[in-house]
């Protein structure tokens, strides 16, 4: 176990130490103490490491995450796991706005609430939020899945492409071109898999409603010309 205390060690030293593991893994388990809201903690990890961050982090924690697992035992600021590629990121507390934005793969789990724009422009990432998500979540979401065990705020899935949205609680409002869809067997199987992967065993996939694209914005409709 490698322990890095950010009250005595520079952030760059931590991230450089994590990148050094890309050459040859000498230490798989890392513990980060006193993050004190620092930005860019444990970004771009590309080695099979387990990084446990004890405390709350600021902007862009675990951004561009590639391989391994980052667990934040606290809350995360804006843009956690932004553009994550693969691997796993777990936030034990709450996540601020645009969690998992533009993510291309991997699994982001938020055990508390995520605020606005969760999964905005997601492109393949799977996001599981145990609490609620804020307004404009999954805006222009292209692929991947957003699973919300609580409620969703205004304009869920506005201008959505082919991402799948599963919400267990209430949706305050749906965004443009986002509609409720039938939950078929393949969706139940998919959702069960995501819940399993997120370590959530106390809810059933049948409790969720699926939302997705009505596909009416895919092609320009001349009747809408006056709207622009």
């Amino acid at each position: 176990m490698q322990t890095v205390d950010l009250s005595t060690t520079e952030l760059r030293e931590l991230n450089a130490g994590l990148y050094a593991q890309m050459e040859a893994v000498t230490e798989t388990d890392w513990e980060v103490l006193n993050p004190r809201g620092h930005h860019a903690v444990a970004v771009g990890i590309n080695a099979p490491l387990n990084v446990d961050v004890h405390g709350s982090v600021g902007y862009y924690c675990a951004g561009m995450h590639q391989v391994g697992t980052v667990t934040v035992h606290g809350s995360a600021g804006p843009g956690v796991a932004e553009n994550m590629m693969s691997g796993k990121v777990v936030i034990k507390g709450d996540a601020s706005q645009y969690a998992g934005a533009t993510g291309r793969g991997g699994l982001l789990v938020v055990e508390g609430n995520a605020s606005s724009r969760c999964g905005i422009s997601m492109k393949g990432i799977n996001i599981v939020v145990r609490g609620n998500v804020g307004h404009m979540s999954a805006f222009m979401a292209q692929s991947g899945n957003l699973v919300v065990l609580g409620d969703a705020g205004d304009a869920l899935g506005d201008s959505i492409y082919e991402a799948g949205l599963f919400v267990r609680g209430a949706v305050k409002s749906l965004g443009a071109d986002c509609i409720a869809k039938e939950m078929r067997d393949e969706h139940v199987t998919l959702l069960q898999g995501l819940l399993d992967e997120a370590g959530i065993r106390d809810v059933s996939p049948t409790e969720f409603t699926r939302y997705g694209s009505a596909r009416t914005l895919y092609h320009f409709n001349i009747d809408n010309a006056a709207a622009y």
């Binding site: 004190r36 809201g37 620092h38 709350s56 600021g58 902007y59 809350s75 600021g77």
Partner: peptide
């Protein structure tokens, strides 16, 4: 605080 950092 604009950020949590300000409150630590």
């Amino acid at each position: 605080g604009s950020e949590y950092r300000a409150l630590v």
